[in-house]
Simulated scan of single mutants.
Amino acid sequence: MSVPAPRRTPAASPAHRPDARRRVRRAFVAAAALCLVAATAAAAPPAPAAPTGCGDLVRGQLCLRGPVGSDGTYTATYRRHGAAAGLREIPVRLGYQRKNTRITAFPGWFGTRWTRHGAVTLSGRVEMLADECIRGVMEHAETVYVTKWSCG
């Protein structure tokens, strides 16, 4: 005796089954959300772990940014902590200091300015050799503050 082969019917398309249609829609929405998150993450710049060329002072932060180890424009910035609390504005002198294995140079100054809303920024061109290090310098009320050395 032979047994007839089972009849196979084609499976219904997802459009004909309400449960399958819901799964397809959820999968599409999830894929679209992942693409949106990936595009947003790729467009956003990575946050730095910690500012480079900066030094924390008792009442603020002093930073020097520039192409360490080569000629270029360097920018010194001082930001006071608590500036929003209504502290008075102060005059500061901003600059830099260079050194290599033989000598530490006298400070070079970008200029003197009063803070505005607790911050001041000054820039200037600095000529540096590849083996030199540089640090930010600030003078206020005859006291000199410095950052750590940055070497190329």
Rank of each mutant, 00 (worst) to 15 (best):
S2G: 08
S2R: 07
V3S: 12
P4A: 14
A5L: 11
A5T: 08
P6M: 06
R7D: 15
P10F: 13
A11P: 05
A11T: 06
R17K: 08
A20K: 09
R22L: 15
R23V: 01
V24D: 11
R25Q: 11
R26E: 12
A27E: 13
A27K: 05
V29N: 07
A32Y: 03
A32V: 15
A33V: 11
A33P: 00
L34W: 07
L34P: 00
C35T: 11
V37T: 10
V37H: 09
V37A: 14
A38L: 15
A39S: 15
A39F: 13
A42G: 02
A44S: 10
A47I: 06
A47V: 11
A47D: 11
A47L: 12
A47M: 06
P48G: 12
A50R: 07
T52D: 03
C54I: 07
C54Y: 06
G55Q: 09
G55L: 04
D56Q: 09
L57Y: 08
V58H: 11
V58C: 04
G60N: 04
G60F: 08
Q61S: 08
L62R: 11
L62M: 08
L62W: 12
L62K: 11
L64S: 00
L64D: 00
G66V: 11
G66M: 08
S70P: 01
D71T: 07
T73P: 00
T73N: 10
T77S: 04
T77E: 04
T77F: 00
Y78P: 02
R79N: 09
R79G: 02
R80L: 06
H81C: 00
G82F: 06
G82K: 06
A83Q: 03
A83H: 07
A83N: 03
A84F: 15
A85I: 09
G86D: 06
G86S: 08
L87C: 00
L87M: 06
R88L: 13
R88N: 07
I90E: 15
I90H: 13
I90F: 14
V92L: 14
L94K: 10
L94E: 11
L94Q: 10
G95Y: 04
G95A: 04
Y96S: 00
R98D: 09
N100S: 08
T101L: 14
R102I: 02
R102G: 01
I103P: 00
T104C: 02
T104G: 01
T104V: 10
T104E: 13
F106A: 14
F106W: 12
G108N: 04
G108T: 09
W109L: 14
F110Q: 02
F110N: 01
F110A: 08
T112N: 03
T112M: 04
T112W: 05
W114T: 14
W114S: 08
T115F: 02
R116L: 09
H117L: 15
A119S: 12
V120Y: 01
T121G: 02
T121I: 03
T121M: 05
L122Q: 09
L122C: 09
E127H: 07
E127D: 05
M128L: 14
L129K: 15
A130G: 02
R135G: 01
V137S: 03
V137R: 10
V137D: 03
M138G: 01
E139Y: 01
E139P: 00
A141H: 11
E142G: 05
E142W: 13
E142Q: 14
T143L: 10
W149F: 05
W149L: 05
C151K: 02
G152K: 06
G152F: 05
